[in-house]
Structure formats: C-alpha cells, structure tokens
Simulated assay, not measured.
Amino acid sequence: MVAAADTEKLTQTLAVERDKDGFVEILDRKNRATETSGEGIFVCGSAAGPKALIEVTTEASAVASEIHNFLRSAGRRKTPASTVDAASCVGCDTCMTACPFDAITLVDRPDDAPRPAEVKDDGKLAVIDDQVCRACGICAAVCPEVAIAHNLSDEALFGRLATLTRGVDRPIVGFYCKECAGAALTLSGQHRDQYPEGVRLVELPCVGRVSALHIVEAVRLGAAGVFLAGCAEGRCHYRSGDASAAEQRRLAEELLAEAGLDVPIEQWHLCAVDRTSVARRLRLFHARATGDAAELAALERELALLTAAETPTCVGGESCAHVH
C-alpha cells in the first residue's frame, strides 16, 4: 500500500510531517497514536499507513475524543507564545528562518511602533502568530538582538544557573529537554541511579531553547563541562531543536576558544530506553571534564564489560518506549 497521491500536498498545507513511506507521521505510536506534529491536527485510518477496518473504526473514535478534549482545553499548549520586543527587533529574518512551525513573519513596521535607532522608516518587524507558536524557544535562542521574550526568559535561566552552581566546585551543567531526555533522566532518578554530586540539571521545553550565552554563562560560573540533552536523533518533538542546539554549541565553543578556555561541551540524544545508561554517561562525562583519572579508569573498565549488553539506540516509532 502506498500513500494517497495528494498526501504530500495535504501535509504541506497543514504543516505536518510525513514518515519515510510518505504517510502522515504519527507523533508517538505507543503513547500518542493519533497526534501529528501539528498542534490540534489528528490522524486516523490509512492516512497514517495500512490499517485493518477495525483499527480505522477504533482510531476514528479516539480522534473524536481527542478533538473534544483539545477544544475543551483550548489547545494542548499550556504555555504562552513567545513575543517580539519591537524596540529591539531590527527586522532581520533569523527568527523567521529558524522557526520550525512557520509561526513568524516579517511585516512592515507600523509608524507608531518603537524601533531601534539603526532601523529606518521602511524597516521590517517580526511578528509571532500566537495560534501557531508552540513555545519551543528556538527563536529566542537564535535572535541576535535578544529581542524575543519566551516564557522561560534569559533572566530566569541565568538565575537558575547562578542558584544551582552556587557553592559547587567545578560543577557539570546539563541543559535538557522535558520530552525524551526528560523521560530518560526522570526514570533514572526513579530507579535511584547514582550521579556525581557536582551535576546540575536545567530543564527546558526543548533543547533548542539553549543559546550560546547560556552555555558561556555556565562556564563563567565555574562549570567544568556542559552537556545539551535532547530527543532521540531525528525525533525532536519541536522538529529542529537539536539542530539549533548544535549551532549554539558551536558558537559557544568559538567564544570560549577566543577567551582561551578549553571546556568540554557535548550534545546527547536520549529517550526513555536510555535510562539504564544515562547515569553512567553522566559519570563518564564528569570524570573526563574534571580530570578524575581514577573514576575514569573504573568507568572505562565497567563500560568494556557492559558493551555487549548495551541497550540499542532508540530509532523512534514502535520500538521507542518514550514516556511523556
């Protein structure tokens, strides 16, 4: 069975993803089996792949229930959309290009709108559609003028970093998304896996919310190493959060190199099945970043013994045990 001929046009119109076989992609076949990557857009039947008639009937009932719940709750997103500070926005297209949901457009700046001194009368202004915005924070992270306000503000993040690292000698700072990486870390904590005492974790809606400024600030506060943990590779819930984080990591590394600082920064792709290895990964990164030779040698011996039995990397789809 192949996808209908108009599936590509339909998914482009609705701004939802297709899977590798050309069908409408389901967000998570185990836990969110009727949800697509578009907020408020649900799928059932053969639009998502070959189905038996009884499956189609069951899914149709599930979609009707999902739509009812969605409308009653005024949408799945509980956090407010990002907003643009007109007094700081210079009308570049950085945020518009970065937004994975096409929620940002450039418009002619109204005559009565505040503007930076360098913006001429015919300048543009970025505008965010609050009905489309998913509040991932990617736009706020990439804005070169820091002109976008996110519900998790830069001030709040800097404050968290200062509080978490206060009094800790050479901490390891980890920025992680609340989705897949959050599931792995939560399950690891529930199983009482042991982390080094110096590890400090900062939760983000999406790992794409992290900016180079946040990474550099963590280092300024004494971090011996920084890691960015997002969803399983290619399975970002906000489509391009991992790619945005990778670019911010690169920028941070350049800034630190210019300052003569050699601090390791790693990016990890996690999901719930990584629960058994995430603590070991944290211990290994901590040992490398802090130069703990004894701990590093012990961990390398442990890893050598466990390599054959290591849990395979999550590839998403039905084999993924994401927990939300």
Rank of each mutant, 00 (worst) to 15 (best):
C143P: 06
L157W: 10
P116T: 02
N69E: 12
D111T: 15
E118C: 11
V43R: 01
R109C: 03
I172W: 03
E179A: 14
K124G: 05
F101P: 02
E59Q: 15
T165K: 00
F70A: 07
V107W: 02
T36P: 04
L53K: 11
H68K: 12
R170P: 07
R166V: 03
G40L: 07
S65A: 14
A117K: 14
F101A: 00
K178P: 08
I138V: 12
P110R: 10
R72I: 11
K51I: 04
V43S: 10
Q131I: 03
T163Y: 10
A48K: 15
E55I: 03
V56M: 05
S82V: 05
C92Q: 05
L161N: 02
R134C: 02
P114H: 09
R115P: 04
L106H: 07
A64I: 13
R134K: 14
A98S: 10
I138R: 02
K78C: 00
T105G: 07
A60Q: 06
D130L: 05
C136F: 07
A47Y: 06
V56D: 00
I41R: 11
T83C: 05
T79H: 04
E39Q: 13
Q131R: 13
F101R: 06
A103L: 07
R170H: 14
L152I: 14
E179Y: 14
F175S: 04
D93H: 10
A64R: 09
A135C: 02
L157Y: 02
A113M: 11
G174T: 15
M96G: 04
P110L: 11
P100W: 07
S65Y: 10
A113Q: 05
A162D: 14
S37F: 00
D129A: 08
E179F: 13
V84Y: 05
V107T: 11
S82C: 12
G91E: 01
A62H: 13
V84R: 08
P110F: 07
D102Y: 02
V56L: 01
F70L: 10
I54L: 12
A87L: 05
